[in-house]
Write a protein that binds this DNA or RNA. Structure first.
Length: 413
RNA sequence: GCGCCUGUCGUCAAGCGGUUAAGACCUCGGAUUGUGGUUCCGAUAUGCAUGGGUUCGAAUCCCAUCAGGCGCCCCA
């Protein structure tokens, strides 16, 4: 055992016993998102590095220190750390702005971020997400949030908390940043190291610092006043109140959280997050918002857009484990040829069926059947002679013998 | 990148300086020669992540390395 090769740190096999959960998430995504007119898109896992440095933002941690980047024939290539940039790239490159708007897309797949793994965080992880292009109205934000909530509900996740905030547009946000920096300036030396960095790099992110001393500083009245002030401009405020109106009408409950800041640079106006208390410290299952500037920034016609992404591993960890599916039938017989033929007959009729490829003893076969299947199809000398098969319901212990021709019709006893 | 914790069979584990290194589950074989999931037997770690020490003696103590987990940062 000394030299076996192991999975890379922060990556995991999705094993057969867990695959049903993944199928469920994917099927529900398709079902729910389709109801709202979203279509699936699959973009490559590798992209040109510049897509992310330009799209996600140079100052973000994702781009700064978490990307898997390598050189190949004079190109810098990166494993996607998220999929919004890729979808936007595809939207522009394939001329989707000429389609009648909105363009509604959803995706699922692996993402890669070089971080220290911990609960709810891996280096390769999976996201389902959606992007909607072409609508600046708050209806789009509302539809996307409603859809996220409904997707979670379809999985049985009813009691998650939606947090909502508006970051304003670049103009009012800059004003806010300036104000915030001004009030914080006297306390600069008391802030933690990280906050001192954020002060320059991205003051908005100061707001979700978890260090107690910093929190205390933020509680000072003059700072609270700035944080709680409605800094956003009239248009942004209008957009935000429209959104809340729609959400109220649609019965989506949310908490306003002025401290909510998404880490990616491209967001403006609406940002939201959906959290669970049962996840450890990485408690967000969904994060999203509006990014009206991104399409333009990546070279397309300026196009408003909203979207979200959910962490599939995190979702699965919230869901109750599923019993693995049983086979419909297992054939118990010491006549391998007949067993083989019967198995294939049953498969052709749509059942999932196995038989004992090693022709073990009768009792062993039956024991196996009881573990893996709902019904045992018993095929002994008597049955073969009479062209019959005995079917045993392995949960109830009942058994009947029927003609082979119509044995699948008898499966509801 | 930084902090804390952990590393004994496929899995869950007992063991806390002297044991033939428990036990359970899973798997496999046998008892019951066509009726199981109950029962009964039996098989499965010369080895306790790896490498060094300390000791008469180490899975048990120390150091290093590696791996895993959790937390910070950040995020889904």
């Amino acid at each position: 055992m000394a030299n076996i090769i192991k999975v890379l740190k922060g990556t995991k096999d999705i094993l057969p016993q867990d695959i049903d959960m993944w199928h469920l998430l994917e099927e529900k995504a398709n079902q729910v998102f389709s109801k709202y007119g979203f279509k699936e898109i699959r973009t490559p896992i590798i992209e040109v590095t510049e897509l992310f440095s330009r799209g996600v933002g140079d100052t973000t941690d994702i781009v700064n220190k978490e990307m898997y980047t390598f050189e190949k024939s004079d190109r810098s290539i990166t494993l996607r750390p998220e999929n919004t940039a890729g979808v936007v790239r595809s939207y522009i490159e394939n001329g989707m702005s000429r389609l009648s708007s909105p363009v509604k897309l959803w995706y699922k797949g692996p993402m890669f971020r070089y971080e220290r793994p911990q609960a709810g965080r891996q280096r390769q992880f999976h996201q389902v997400g959606v992007e909607m292009f072409g609508i600046k109205d708050a209806t789009a934000d509302a539809e996307v949030i409603l859809m996220a909530v409904n997707y979670l509900k379809s999985l049985g996740l009813n009691d998650l908390e939606v947090e909502l905030n508006s970051l304003g547009c670049p103009k009012c946000r800059d004003e806010f940043k300036t104000k915030l920096k001004a009030v914080l300036k006297p306390y600069f030396n008391e802030l933690c190291e990280d906050c001192q960095n954020r002060y320059e790099k991205n003051p908005l992110r100061l707001l979700d610092c978890k260090v107690e001393d910093c929190k205390k500083i933020f509680e000072k009245p003059e700072i609270q006043e700035v944080i709680n002030s409605d800094f956003i401009c009239e248009d942004c405020a209008h957009h935000y109140s429209e959104l809340k109106l729609y959400l109220d009408k649609m019965g989506v409950k949310y908490n306003e959280n002025k401290l909510l800041v998404r880490g990616l640079d491209y967001y403006n106006r609406t940002v939201f997050e959906i959290k669970s208390n049962n996840l450890g410290s990485q408690n967000a299952v969904c994060g999203g918002g509006r990014y009206d500037g991104l399409v333009g920034q990546l070279g397309g016609e300026p196009t408003p857009a909203v979207g979200f992404a959910m962490g599939m591993e995190r979702l699965i960890s919230l869901l109750p484990a599923k019993e693995p599916k049983k086979l419909d039938g297992y054939i118990v017989s010491n006549y391998p040829v007949d067993a083989f033929v019967l198995a294939e007959e049953l498969r052709n009729q749509g059942l999932n069926v196995e038989f004992d490829l090693a022709n073990k003893k009768f009792t062993k076969q039956l024991e196996k059947a009881s573990k893996v299947a709902k019904y045992a199809f018993i095929l002994g000398e008597d049955e073969i002679l009479k062209n019959q098969v005995s079917i045993k319901n392995l949960e109830l212990g009942k058994q009947i013998t029927v003609d082979r021709a119509n044995c699948t019709k008898m499966l509801d006893f």
